[in-house]
Structures are given as C-alpha cells and as structure tokens.
Amino acid sequence: MITLEINQRQYQLDLKGHETLLEVLRDHLGMKGTKTACEESECGTCTVAVDGKATLSCIALAANCEGMKINTIEGLANGEELHPLQQAFLDYGAVQCGFCIPGMIMSCKALLDKNPEPSQEEIEYALDGNLCRCAGYLKIFEAIRHAGKVIKAQCEQASLLDRRN
C-alpha cells in the first residue's frame, strides 16, 4: 500500500510496481481530466504537477510519487472559481477540441508559478513539449500572458493585505 497526495487529498492505493501516475489517476481513481495522446512522453497531453514541476504522468511511476504533492486539472479551480489560467483560456479562445488543454494548462501553471511575466521565448520553450493540433498555439500564448498578469496582480494584492495585517 502506498499513499499518494493528489489535489491535497490522501489516497491509499494498492499498486503494481510498474503502474504509472496516469494509470492511477485515470483507471484507479477515475480522474479522467488528465488525458494522453501517445503514452510515450512525446505529446505532453498527460502533464500534471508533481511538487510544482510539470511532469509527464504517462512515464512517471506512481510509486515514485509517494510523499510528493500531485496536482491535476481537477484540483486547479478554487471551489467554483476558475483559476486565472482556466478563465484566460476561455476568454482568449485558446480552447478548440480541448483534449490537449488539461496538460497544456498544467504546463502553463508550472511556468507562471515560477515567472508570471514570461517572455515570448520563455512561453514557447515551456510549451514546446505540449502538442496542440487545433489552435495553432497563438491564442494559447495570449491566454498565458493575460493569466500571468492576473496572477501577478493577485499576488500583489495578497502581499498588500499581508502587510496591512
């Protein structure tokens, strides 16, 4: 039995040694938000965050993630309020078929958590592992830039409040 922490909740799981994080999420826990399009680490569709780092769940062994904080698309919104990235993807028309979007957003989040004001080069570099066949990336770039601004403003607001308190 191992314990995995996924979206701040603990799960006790009886796993075979070779099972991937993707298999655990989709098949054991029924968390179907995370998709995959190749299962061999080429498309980025299965990206989740492990200890804040964008991680390909199709090649990450679940057992190796014990003790780490795993975050998936299902845990991104704050209650009913969408995460700024989710809202920006909607507002900027960055979503077409939606299949790449959970992985894409998780990669974007890992980038923005480190740097809410990435340059165009940094955005393109961070997303180069995530395939999108519908949208041609341009609206995704716009959405990230906008979400970064919102996140930065939120952080500034929060630190202002902290100082006041």
Binding site: G30, I73, G98, I101, I105
Partner: peptide
C-alpha cells in the same frame, strides 16, 4: 460577438467527457 465557447468550462476543468473517457 466573440462569446465564450458553450462547452468551454468543461474543457478547461477536465470535466468534458470524451469517448476516450467512457467507462
């Protein structure tokens, strides 16, 4: 008008259901 996608919220939250997810 550029209204948001009618099915967009499902897609950005992982709740949209594809044949891939049917079980």
């Amino acid at each position: 008008k550029s209204v948001p996608r009618i099915d967009g919220k499902g897609m950005v939250t992982g709740q949209a259901k594809y044949a891939f997810d049917v079980s």
